[in-house]
Design a protein around this nucleic acid. Structure first.
Lengths: 147, 147
DNA sequence: AGACTGCTTAGACAAAGTCTAGAAATGTCA
DNA sequence: TGACATTTCTAGACTTTGTCTAAGCAGTCT
């Protein structure tokens, strides 16, 4: 059943969120600020669904369409990264430093692997005319005591 | 748009497919053989949907539920690997050697990176009580001439 | 005011994948 | 052979994530 949602997730102050958005050339609407205050409060991995639920525990209300639009916008503007590990949903990662992930298969939990903790692989020759967009290493884990 | 489906995909002979299934302790039913003949004919990446379509271009017909059941079974028995890169669907990889992937963002095409082509990174310390299930490196690519 | 722009919204929609309940095949054993 | 149990397959309903559409709203400019 995954993680129970944090009852009182930390939030950025509105002023901080607005500054962050402006720095990334994003018009700070009330909905975007509400989303940023939660998602960008710390390094974390949230699905669109979890975020929608967290945002709507308080005012202002934000629609599902706006959550998806905003996540897409944050992604394009480099405020968050998408992590594709669970076939059922995308996680949005507010840690924008270069890093990788442990994925606990059973619980569905993502944990960061900082760049310094892992040796960068040597890249192979690229297909012609290609540019590397990203390099993601995913280490899938299972508990030693579970079958 | 992705790739146009191969009009005449290569197929294993039924006898070969049956042998492969038996070697992996899978009862070779007609449906499983039909799926194996296509999926295991060569190293390739197919989605459940592509496979369903390919199988049903010929007899015997196989239902959607059976395709999903069979892919799950092949996965558990180690005949194929799942590759999660596209949020919209899982690819099933008939190359079971240890290897990694290029993913062309625009076309949605997967290409293998053989183990010898890439330097393996040193693994970080694992969370306590964990076992590594798999290590997957995904290099996302985009064309140099596309914005 | 009127026109234009960008943003948000509800709800319809699409697509991948799961589940259910029954039918069909297969195997076992007396 | 017949009776029964087990496994597999199937159609179709269903769930969930995510997208799309059309309308409304707010601010800005002239």
């Amino acid at each position: 059943m995954g993680l129970s949602a944090d009852a009182t997730p930390p939030r950025l102050h509105s002023a901080q969120a607005i500054t962050l958005l402006r720095e990334h050339e994003i018009t700070p609407t009330p909905q975007r600020v509400a989303i940023a205050r939660i998602l960008l409060a710390r390094a974390q991995h949230l699905s669109a669904d979890q975020l929608l639920e967290a945002v709507n525990r308080s005012e202002p209300r934000v629609s599902k369409a706006t959550v998806y639009n905003t996540l897409g916008l944050f992604l394009r503007k480099g405020l968050v990264r998408a992590v594709v590990v669970d076939p059922a949903k995308v996680f949005y990662d507010s840690n924008t430093r270069f890093h990788h992930h442990f994925y606990d298969i059973k619980s569905g939990t993502l944990t960061d692997i900082e760049e310094t903790e892992i040796g960068m692989p040597a890249l192979p020759n690229l297909p012609n005319g290609s540019i590397v967009e990203s390099v993601e290493i995913i280490v899938r884990l299972r508990s030693r005591f579970t079958q």
